[in-house]
Every structure is written in C-alpha cells, then in structure tokens.
Design a binder for these strands. Structure first.
Lengths: 149, 149
DNA sequence: CCTTGACCTTCCCACGGGGGAAGGCTTCAC
DNA sequence: GTGAAGCCTTCCCCCGTGGGAAGGTCAAGG
C-alpha cells in the first residue's frame, strides 16, 4: 500500500512517516517503479506502535529504544518496564512544573481586581527584582529550561 | 550598561535578549560608538518582566501582549487578568493531557511482569489496532498535537 | 489515447526558545 | 602598550512536526 493508506491505517500522517524515516527511526520501505513507498501490514503495525508511543509522550529516542525491544523477540520485559517507568517520572516532573506555574498564576490572578483600573499586581509582580515575585509562591519553574536557574 | 550586565541583572541570558530583540518582542536599544547595545535600568525591568513571564509558561505572543499592557499606563487590569486566566486554562489542559499519559503508562506498567520474560503488555498494547489499547484508559492525548485526532 | 485529479516525491520555511561556535571589535585594567 | 575579557554578527543545531511549492505518477473515465 502507498504511504497515504498506510498513514490512515496507522493513525499518523504521511508527513510524519517520511520524517521518521529521514531521521532513521523507521527503516526505508521498498519503492514502486515510480518511486512510491510501499508498506506492508507489518509496517502499519510498526507505524501504529510509533504513533501511539508518541501520543504517550515518548521522545523519538525512547521510541527508537522501544521499537528495538519490540523487534527483539528475546527481550526482557524488565527493559521495557524500565523505559516506561523512567518516562512516567519525566512526565510527572513536567506536570509538577506546570502545576507550580498555575499555582503562581492563580495567586496573582486572585489579587488582581480585574476591572477598569490600571493597577495590577500581576504586572508589578512580574517586574519585581529577583525572586520577590515568586518566592512566596512555588519555586520549581519549567523542567530544565533555564540553565542558570 | 552592556548586554551581559543587563542580562545578569534581569536573570536572562544575553542570547535570549538578542533573540527577543530579533523577533520584535523587545525594542532595539541604543548602541555605543563601538556598536554595543546599551541598556537602561528601565530596560532591565522590561527584561526581567519578559523572563519571568516566560518562566510562567507564557508564549512569546502572550508576553508581547503583556508587555504592551505593561507599557500602557491607562490599561485596564481586567485585560491583564483575562490573559492570565486564559493561560491558566491552557496550562491546565496540558496538565490534564500529561496526567492522562501517566495514567495510561501506569496501567500498562502495572500489568507488565518486569522480569526476564519477553512477553510485555506495554509493547503489545502499543501495537494494537485503533483505540483498543487506550480505550480502557484515558482518551485525552497531548493538547493539540495530533491534527486528525 | 488522453486528460483529469488524486496521490506521490523532494525541498524549504516556520514555530518556541534558545545553545554553541567562528571570527572580529572594544574596552578595561595593568 | 598589551593582553584578556566581553561584546559584536552570523551561521547552523535541537525537537516534532505542519504547511506549502514545484514537479512526477497513477488509475480511472471519456
């Protein structure tokens, strides 16, 4: 089948498939005489695997590792589980960072009149020096974003 | 003061300042005879404002809006609050998406032996057709990542 | 047989939010 | 006067795609 059909069957876009192939995540499929990529039903399985792993937030590298384990019939399930657990930890870190932002924003929004007057603690707090604006709130910023933080 | 000093005072990197200037988020400062950017204490306030807004997860566009409101002394605090509330909603959507992923992963990890045997429900579930693998779990995937979702 | 339209190909640009390096100026302290 | 920072610009890199242009292929209908 052509790339469009395979993409629809796997729940990803043709664009994504070409991208995954270009970065070496997927092996290049055979081509028709006209140069079209030709996919087998097994390929569709692999594509769906990759797409669903992405939906679960795995990075390209992690998906590559999972794909290798998937292809290896003698894998140990412990290896798979370790990757999954590690990913859970990573996701929870992001969740915590986002929740800290929400908490800070909620606090700021609560103290803002929200009417026609110009004075707004959200704005003044954002411009406050150093950590004065966030110290009374929740330190953990974005996960690993700031180098000097 | 030069860019490095201003960056240190505002808690951002010189690189970030140049980047923000290049995309039009910040106005170009005056230059010395040697071409160095010269920043005033007010500029440092603005820089800190932008950096802290980014730490709270605001997008470049949103920071631009907030900066415009910040400069406008006759703004209505309701406008600021609306942006903040909108951002909270957005962040909560991301949190929910991440939590759904974690829940699914937890479920999969729980059913995986995690020993030397090769059979692993994590892998088989990822390759299952359609929504069979996630239907018994939590639908909301990443916020706005998949177009055809 | 030929056209049409859907599909495919490669290539480049964009996003956010910068990191890092190359190669050249300035500026400051000694 | 001179050496070491620090700054300048410019370029290319990362993730994970999405969008679109310019052009080739394929299947079906007239």
């Amino acid at each position: 089948m052509n790339i469009g059909e395979a993409a629809a069957a796997a729940g990803v876009t043709a664009k994504t498939i070409r991208y995954y192939e270009s970065i070496g995540l997927l092996r290049p499929p055979p081509r028709s005489t006209g140069g079209y990529r030709l996919y087998s039903p097994e390929d569709v399985h692999t594509l769906r695997f990759a797409g669903r792993a992405r939906d679960l937030g795995f990075s390209i590298d992690e998906i590559g590792n999972l794909l290798a384990l998937w292809r290896d019939k003698r894998r140990a399930s412990a290896d798979v589980k370790r990757i999954a657990i590690g990913h859970i930890v990573e996701l929870e870190g992001k969740i915590a960072a986002l929740q800290a932002m929400v908490a800070t924003l909620r606090h700021l929004a609560r103290t803002c009149h929200g009417d026609g007057r110009p004075d707004c603690p959200i704005l003044t707090s954002l411009a406050e020096p150093a950590d004065a604006g966030s110290a009374h709130c929740h330190p953990p910023k974005r996960a690993g974003r700031r180098k000097k933080a």
